[in-house]
């Protein structure tokens, strides 16, 4: 038998996760990114400033765990090829906002976009 408490718990869990997702969307993913960080095992493998990328840049990440091909444009980031079996990182949509991530767990790879105020444009700061 489904009791009232069951329904309350179900609604509570759903509401909690929707609130968390909205929070992430509006407060964590809101900044526009200015750099791309590629991490393997939690350590920075490579970092690219989006301003330095002319049209697009293909990065091959080859480590002891496997290889991934990452495509960076000046506004988006996606994984186009991977050596892992499930290819979940290739299937995930390109990311465009700061703090969003794409992961490839079998290859211990994390790629994320970062908005770092240290490398933001100096001229803009003076102008405003």
């Amino acid at each position: 038998m489904i009791t009232l408490h069951d329904k309350l718990l179900f609604t509570g869990v759903i509401l909690l996760s929707i609130t968390l997702m909205l929070f992430l969307n509006f407060f964590v993913y809101s900044d526009s990114p200015n750099s791309v960080v590629i991490e393997v095992d939690g350590e920075v493998y490579a970092e690219y400033n989006l301003k330095d990328i002319k049209d697009e840049k293909i990065v091959n990440v080859v480590t002891e765990y496997g290889s991934n091909k990452i495509r960076i444009t000046n506004s988006s980031l996606e994984v186009t090829d991977a050596s892992c079996e499930d290819k979940l990182d290739v299937m995930s949509a390109p990311i465009t906002k700061a703090n969003q991530i794409i992961v490839c767990v079998p290859n211990h790879l994390t790629v994320r976009m970062k908005s770092d105020s240290n490398i933001s444009d100096e001229i803009d700061r003076v102008a405003y």
Binding site: L16, L20, L24, I101, V103, V105, H108
Partner: peptide
């Protein structure tokens, strides 16, 4: 496995 906390943002989904 990833030594990274960023994946916790996936938990709500």
């Amino acid at each position: 496995t990833l030594s990274s906390g960023y994946i916790w943002s996936y938990l709500p989904v």
